[in-house]
Amino acid sequence: MSRAERPAFDRELLEQIVQAIPHVGVLGLKVTEIDVGRALARIDWRDDLVGDPGTGVLHGGVLTTVVDTVSGLAVMSRVTEVMQIATLDLRIDYLRPARPRLPVFAEATCYRLSRSVAFVRARAYQEGGDDVAASLATFMLQSSSLPAWVKTQGTRT
């Protein structure tokens, strides 16, 4: 791989970036694997994340957040320049209710990276079960300028 094509963020840096996201921290979302163009994460079931107290099923907002985060990470793992990205759109299908008290895993693949837009598909699933959600998302690359101190750090990587 030539210098220009090398991913700008390595695994360690991406893990640091994700850990610095406040909303990821309060959800207890953990990144478990990152490759170029692919990311995996897990979230443990918690009673304060439930959407329907009658069934104990997680709120859709939790799955949307997990899928959005892991999809963004799949994009970040592939870009060859230090940059910010932003979700343009995200469509999520809730295939079946996530079973209460079990963790949910999410896997995202950035399958196409153009100059301005990244295309990502993702799935959420539980152990020994079928998928609970499927999503397609697009991300805008270079969505906003970086603070000067980040740029300086970026040129050193």
Binding site: I21, H23, V24, H59, G60, G61, V62, T64, T65, V66, V67, D68, T69, Q84, A86, T87, L90, I92, S144, L146, P147, V150
Partner: peptide, 12 residues
């Protein structure tokens, strides 16, 4: 960095 709300919670 921006700072911006998480898209996932806006989704929620």
């Amino acid at each position: 960095l921006i700072p911006a709300l998480h898209g996932g919670v806006i989704g929620g």
